[in-house]
Simulated scan of single mutants.
Amino acid sequence: MILPLPKNFDENEIFIIASTVLTFALMFKLPRHLSAVTITIIWTFNIFLALLADITLSVKPYELYFTIDHKTHELFDVLLHFVTYPTLPYFVVNFYQYKKPKGLKNLFYIVFWSGVAITIEWISVKFHVFTYTGWNLFLSFLVYLVVFAANIWLTNFTEKKHPSKWT
């Protein structure tokens, strides 16, 4: 099945391209504190989470939001799910491995990154990457708390078995 091209190449596609280029540039510019195994697992895990969210929350009976221009998927949805979405959790766990916050600092770390995530999501809503039909940023914030905590746990678990050579 070939996914259709966007009906209109407009602000949401430009936003996705620009944010993907920017985050990839940062990924390759900033120091890496994760093993290749951890990066692969985290990346795959977040693709799974993004797809799971979209196939459960953006379809009937819920239809809480849709992405890009319409309720069906298009080529830029693939870019969004497989390339753009996983970059933020990558930064969360990469910096976590560098700082290794403990206790209350760990909670503040997760809350901080959840705030960063909803800020980015708010901007993406302004560019019509997401259209909410029952979803809101508060729900996203709660989801990000859980997702980032799960990513940190998964990173710690993976790095015990496959430590980064940079740590």
Rank of each mutant, 00 (worst) to 15 (best):
V146E: 10
F157K: 12
V143E: 12
V147D: 12
F148W: 00
L139C: 07
I120N: 07
N156C: 07
N136K: 13
V146W: 04
V129H: 12
S140P: 03
V147W: 07
T155V: 15
A150E: 08
L145N: 04
I123N: 07
A149D: 14
F138G: 02
W135L: 02
I152Q: 07
F148M: 00
A149K: 10
S140W: 01
H162C: 05
Y144D: 02
W153M: 04
I118L: 05
A149H: 04
K160E: 15
A150V: 10
I123M: 14
W122N: 15
K160D: 06
L145V: 09
L137I: 14
F157L: 11
Y144C: 11
T155A: 15
F148C: 03
F138N: 03
T158N: 07
F130W: 10
E121Y: 01
V143M: 01
T133C: 12
T133I: 06
I152A: 09
K126T: 10
Y144P: 05
F157A: 02
W122F: 15
Y144Q: 05
Y132E: 03
A117E: 00
W135R: 03
G134S: 07
T131C: 05
H128N: 11
I152D: 13
F141G: 12
F127A: 02
E159L: 04
A150K: 00
V116A: 01
T119H: 01
W153Y: 07
T133L: 12
V125I: 12
S140Q: 11
L154S: 14
I123P: 10
G115C: 00
W135Q: 04
Y144H: 00
G134N: 08
T131D: 05
E159T: 05
L137W: 06
V146R: 06
V116N: 01
W153T: 05
T155G: 10
W153L: 05
V146A: 10
F148V: 05
Y132V: 02
F127K: 11
S124E: 08
A149P: 02
A117Y: 06
K126H: 07
W122D: 10
G115Y: 04
W122L: 04
F157C: 06
H128Q: 14
T133V: 02
F141Q: 11
I120A: 14
W153S: 04
N136S: 06
T131L: 09
V146G: 14
W153N: 00
F138C: 08
A149M: 15
L142F: 07
N151V: 15
L145T: 00
A117M: 02
K161Q: 14
K126Q: 15
V147S: 10
N156Y: 02
Y132P: 08
N151G: 09
A117G: 11
N136M: 08
I120C: 09
A149T: 13
V143G: 05
E121Q: 14
F141C: 09
I152Y: 06
L145K: 01
H128L: 13
L154H: 11
T158C: 12
H162P: 14
E121M: 06
Y132K: 12
F138W: 13
T119A: 07
F130E: 00
T131M: 07
N151I: 12
F127R: 03
Y132C: 06
F130R: 13
S124C: 02
F138Q: 02
T155R: 12
